[in-house]
Simulated assay, not measured.
Amino acid sequence: MKPEQHPQETERLRELRRYGILDTDREQAFDEIVELAALLCEAPVSVVNFIDKDRQWFKAETGLGVRSTPLETSLCGHVILQDEFVEIPDTLADVRMADNPLCTSDPGFRFYAGAVLKGSHGLPLGTLCVLDHQPRVLSDLQRKVITALSHQVMRELDLRQALEREQMLRREIDHRVKNSLASIGSLFSMKARTAPDENVRIALEDASMRIRSLSSLHAELHDLEEGQSVDLESLFRRVCMDLEQLLPEGVSLSADVRGGRASPHLANGLLLIVNEFVSNSVKHGLTETGGRIEFVITTEEDQWSIVCKDNGSADTKDAALAASASGLGTRVINSLASSLGASLDWRASGHGMELRLASLAEA
């Protein structure tokens, strides 16, 4: 006998799909649940299954060897229309299953016991069940085991759903933060162009540069999963494009990234170092006729280094002043070097400034 549809079949299927569990790969967490159910209930077969529109699909199974069966032969399709726990001592004595080929074949399933898996809205999605080839009954302890394990299945699914909602919210917040940073950076840049006071203009351009750099980093971090590293080449391609819009006419910026990836902490530090160096070069090192700023980043396993250069007019006195960290930008770089555990070296000989930082193991 084919199972009847649930009275709220449309809503039930909608809730099932909301969990996003159908057609996913096997997972140890669910495999262990069915193995434990089979062991404690002394049953040859145990499954975690979900009742789809026209099939019964198994998230986990032991002793069965298939991932889905037609709905026409589903035992659990009948069970989800009943109570939270169903035990059928002899399936051939049940009118719903007496003609089911899964029960009448040799060896057929002559015993069934299962707990209904209910979604957060109380609608039945499937079951955790055990099956045997002989008629029998479970002990009270075994019934409690199946019920407890079924609750564990749904707790796992509900937790995943909660995490997915949290990730969606985070992505939405990240998107808004990214747009806000870009808008603020553009606003500062526009204000700088119309500022009547030179000091105000420089301050606004400096702020715009920092915000745009942070926006570039945020864009790279936006889609990273926990534990992933940052693609430095992609990050500094963004950084250069953003900073070039703010550089004075005739000043060029180039980046050479060797190695590829870094932790978010290191990527953030490198970004801020580049940002401060560019800002200082524009304000103090490059002439009004233009110039060039370039930096080389190298990463290899746990080692890294960065070399920033400009071709301005900085000399040994300027290098000494930078090394003393008397200005805001050089203080920031000094602090970053300390937090990253890096050596720091300022050099200049009248043809531009050079800054070298390297992880201490490489220095």
Results as ranks from 00 to 15, higher is better:
residue 172 E to A: 15
residue 64 L to Y: 05
residue 25 D to I: 07
residue 160 R to W: 03
residue 317 K to S: 13
residue 108 G to Q: 10
residue 211 I to C: 11
residue 111 F to P: 02
residue 39 L to E: 06
residue 3 P to A: 09
residue 336 L to W: 04
residue 203 A to C: 09
residue 358 A to S: 15
residue 286 L to D: 00
residue 20 G to F: 04
residue 258 R to T: 03
residue 305 S to A: 13
residue 104 T to E: 00
residue 265 H to S: 10
residue 300 E to H: 15
residue 309 K to L: 06
residue 166 E to Q: 14
residue 154 M to G: 09
residue 224 L to V: 05
residue 240 C to I: 09
residue 263 S to A: 14
residue 169 L to I: 08
residue 353 M to Q: 06
residue 159 L to F: 14
residue 241 M to S: 11
residue 346 W to S: 04
residue 358 A to G: 15
residue 329 G to Q: 09
residue 218 H to W: 04
residue 168 M to K: 15
residue 120 S to I: 03
residue 61 E to M: 05
residue 243 L to P: 02
residue 294 E to T: 12
residue 38 A to I: 00
residue 148 A to G: 08
residue 174 D to W: 03
residue 265 H to Y: 04
residue 210 R to A: 15
residue 125 L to M: 14
residue 140 D to C: 12
residue 37 A to E: 05
residue 106 D to E: 15
residue 324 S to P: 01
residue 59 K to P: 05
residue 287 T to K: 06
residue 177 V to G: 09
residue 58 F to N: 02
residue 235 L to C: 10
residue 282 V to M: 04
residue 26 R to T: 14
residue 251 V to M: 00
residue 286 L to A: 01
residue 60 A to T: 04
residue 111 F to R: 02
residue 111 F to Q: 02
residue 290 G to H: 09
residue 161 Q to E: 09
residue 137 V to C: 13
residue 299 T to W: 00
residue 110 R to G: 00
residue 151 H to D: 05
residue 110 R to I: 00
residue 188 F to C: 10
residue 115 A to G: 12
residue 122 G to H: 08
residue 328 L to R: 08
residue 295 F to Q: 03
residue 104 T to D: 00
residue 359 S to A: 14
residue 24 T to A: 13
residue 113 A to R: 09
residue 50 F to C: 03
residue 263 S to H: 06
residue 87 E to G: 15
residue 93 A to G: 14
residue 329 G to S: 13
residue 177 V to Y: 13
residue 11 E to L: 12
residue 26 R to Y: 08
residue 295 F to S: 09
residue 121 H to T: 13
residue 358 A to C: 15
residue 132 D to S: 13
residue 90 D to W: 01
residue 322 A to D: 00
residue 53 K to D: 11
residue 54 D to F: 02
residue 319 A to L: 03
residue 324 S to G: 13
residue 353 M to G: 07
residue 148 A to D: 11
residue 20 G to M: 04
